[in-house]
C-alpha cells in the first residue's frame, strides 16, 4: 500500500506525515506523531475519548481518516494549555476533582473548550447535551459539569472589559 504524504497544522505547528490511506487521524496522532493524550476507548465514535478539533469542528478522531487532515488544522489536548498556563477548563477540572482515572479527561476537556469557545454562557442542560458524546465511567458527570460551568464563569470574567 502506498503511503500518502499529508501536510497539516497540529496545535499551531506545521506537521507533515506519511500514512496509509486507511489510517485514522487517531492512529497517526498517537502512533505516528506521538501525541498520546488523545485516547482510544472504542474506535467507533461512541466514547469521545479521542475528541479533537478539526478546522474548528469537534470530531472523534477515530472516525476521521488521517488523509482528511490534509491542509487543515488539528487541535488536540496537548494544545489546550498555553505553554505552562492551564486553560480554565483544565484548572477547574483539577479544582473540582472532576477526574478520577483521568482516561476520558482529555476528550472531555477538548469538548468542553470547544463548547465554551462558541457559547460562553451555557446552561447545565446545554453542557450535559454537548458532552453527551463523551463517556465517563468514574465520576457520574456531576463534578465535570460543575467544572465546566465554573470555567465558563471564569472565562466570562476574563473577557469582561476592565
Amino acid at each position: 500500500m502506498n503511503k500518502l504524504h499529508i501536510s497539516t497544522i497540529i496545535n499551531g505547528d506545521a506537521q507533515e506525515f506519511l500514512c496509509d490511506p486507511t489510517a485514522t487521524l487517531l492512529d497517526v496522532l498517537r502512533d505516528g506523531i506521538g501525541l498520546t493524550g488523545t485516547k482510544e476507548g472504542c474506535a467507533s465514535g461512541d466514547c469521545g475519548a479521542c475528541t479533537v478539533v478539526l478546522d474548528g469542528q469537534m470530531v472523534c478522531s477515530c472516525l476521521v481518516l488521517a488523509a482528511e487532515a490534509q491542509g487543515r488544522t488539528v487541535a488536540t489536548i496537548e494544545g489546550v494549555a498555553e505553554g505552562a498556563m492551564l486553560h480554565p477548563v483544565q484548572r477547574q477540572f483539577l479544582e473540582h476533582g472532576a477526574l478520577q482515572c483521568g482516561f476520558c479527561t482529555p476528550g472531555f476537556i477538548v469538548a468542553a473548550k470547544a463548547l465554551l469557545d462558541r457559547n460562553p454562557n451555557p446552561t447545565e442542560t446545554e453542557i450535559r447535551y454537548w458532552l453527551a458524546g463523551n463517556l465517563c465511567r468514574c465520576t457520574g458527570y456531576d463534578k465535570i459539569v460543575r467544572a465546566v460551568m465554573d470555567a465558563a464563569a471564569e472565562l466570562r470574567q476574563e473577557r469582561m472589559p476592565a
Partner: peptide, 21 residues
Amino acid sequence: TRPVRPDGVDKVTGKALYGTD
C-alpha cells in the same frame, strides 16, 4: 481538605501514560 491531586496536571494535559501509551 480538597487540594489538587499530585498527578492532576499530567492528566488534564494529556501527558499521563496509560496502557496503550
